[in-house]
Design a binder for these strands. Sequence first.
DNA 1: ATAGTCTCTGTGTGCGCACACAAATATACA
DNA 2: TGTATATTTGTGTGCGCACACAGAGACTAT
Lengths: 356, 356
Amino acid sequence: MNSIPQKIKIKDIAEKAGVSAGTVDRVLHNRGNVSDETRRRIQSILNEINYRPNHYASALASKKVFVFCAVIPNCEPGGYWELIEKGLLRAEQELYDFKVVVKVHYFDQYSPTSFADAMDVVLGQGSAPDGVLLAPLYRPKTLIYTKKMEEMEIPYVFIDSRLEEANPLAFYGQDSFQSGYLGAKLLFSQHSDVDKIAIFSFFDTGQTPSNQIAIRMEGFKSYIEKNQQSCKVLRGTLSADDPEENEAMMKKLFAENPDIKGTAIFSSRTYAVAGFLEKYKMNHVRMIGYDLLEKNVEYLKNNTVSYLIAQRPEEQAYKGVKAFSDHFIFKKEVQQINYMPIDILTQENIEFYMEF
Amino acid sequence: MNSIPQKIKIKDIAEKAGVSAGTVDRVLHNRGNVSDETRRRIQSILNEINYRPNHYASALASKKVFVFCAVIPNCEPGGYWELIEKGLLRAEQELYDFKVVVKVHYFDQYSPTSFADAMDVVLGQGSAPDGVLLAPLYRPKTLIYTKKMEEMEIPYVFIDSRLEEANPLAFYGQDSFQSGYLGAKLLFSQHSDVDKIAIFSFFDTGQTPSNQIAIRMEGFKSYIEKNQQSCKVLRGTLSADDPEENEAMMKKLFAENPDIKGTAIFSSRTYAVAGFLEKYKMNHVRMIGYDLLEKNVEYLKNNTVSYLIAQRPEEQAYKGVKAFSDHFIFKKEVQQINYMPIDILTQENIEFYMEF
DNA sequence: ATAGTCTCTGTGTGCGCACACAAATATACA
DNA sequence: TGTATATTTGTGTGCGCACACAGAGACTAT
């Protein structure tokens, strides 16, 4: 009764094999210095019995300090990347006793060069990190560094979005196409006779659709082509640092097209457009936005935004770090592609997502 | 560089206080046998510095085996409670090295007596468990046992639903009222001119609304009263073990009311109604259902069900067990009321919830 | 004064493992 | 055969902690 299944220890294996614990330790960690014969003998015993090392004891005895670097855009307060950072810190806290350190390096979201600079710092320091977690915003630049990390044999984890060409230890993020597709469905879910909508983005049309937001837009358009061919889609481009210009642009757009009945923006800065709609009391325009930010939730609650689509950024980051610890410390298989649920948030359920 | 912040150990505290490690250990665990003076001295040092014990080393050294009992309805394959069980097992696995054992006891979902029997077994054995996790399906019976556990000083955790009158260590579940409310909103989200709907349930109308499903129904009705007063709501009662009778009942109901445009069922056995709609090709009836079961997902995918509302049962159970380990092993504060997110599932996002 | 009893405190061992080091054995070469 | 050198194996210590036990004082009763 109440007895725990008898744990097999290294010493047990040693006894079975007629060697000392030290030798078993050597084969377990591939430390070499073991004759072929004894290694085979120990291996066969290991295959036979179900030895499950006590990783806590292991961590306790080990002197190894793990350093994982995260390379992410600057976290403006209340913004998306702050949630990512929160997840990183939570993972670090949890792994504190395993001697895990997470170092966060920042770059300018709108400057590929600064991303490269950050990566150079991370990889170029005296001692290279044991793993790198990054958000591959820029395909070409990122590929340069993933290649470099593969040469250096440093595993890396993608969060947010992923690059087909790379081979990360793991990826945690949303299926951007599908989240865009769903956004369109929700936009049209109330009245399918919406015949003119506007969508907004923060980047130039000319840019290669290498990142999440561009792919979301593709998904969105794909839904419309399939189910709402007759609907006309207008596009507006927002500036990252000039709110007044943005307001003027939207004002003009909506004035020239009073028959716009719906709108969507695929970035976490949904509040930029929602704020405009609220200010000018455009209740007749139904809106879909992205990401669970305080500033967006406000507009969901007052019904400016009908639905928010969220992607659990904190969990992405947390799981990203955990992927490293699973790999290095707990010796678990890590699943490579991990799509996060595409959460649908409304006035009615938002409250219960706030602390998750 | 790469140095971990210096960890404070018991020995450090002992040195600071001018005593031995054993004495510090005594005050840390309230084991007594320490003079008031030294205890105060050590306490003040503890308050001053931020001592964070290494719980892994602690568990390694400790001989204590924790036994947590779970009392849940029988798990039929592919059913709701199987997901709960899955979460229990996952938690047990994860806590294996902390000498945690989770024992699952089952009762008949439709028999309060069998619930009482199970609880008697759990609490009446030679050695009482360290904690009990239960689903309080029956208010009166449950209250008898929560009182008993409080007398025995055995902490308990609620999952699924909760009782206001009890004082559990923690609760993990959905806000049933709100999930019902949201169900109604989604049912009417496409066309607000739906004027007749049918809702189904597995229990008698006479029963006190003590459990989740009844409260969901209240939330559902509340939405209608607020936003769809003109809509007529018909009710059908299903039998738990007579599918043919159910089919006949539904057949009659829909034949007599061909103008029914929507339907909902608040139990995880959504498939019981969805199967009927599919069989008789009643595509004109929009349906809302509950819970992420394989059998329900099928009907979501083929569009018989428009939305499924889910509540992460596996996570409820997992977190329920973790509440005990946080309390006993990691000495963390446990938040008492924990509402799970009310997930909205559609054809477009269901895929990404399947493995979560 | 001595033995007995309490209260309080220090010491030692082991949890399961990693890792440095010592020891034993095998191999080379003169 | 002996010595030097690899190769292989065993041993010991400590990670941070829990807990049993031994030991030191203080105090009482005889």
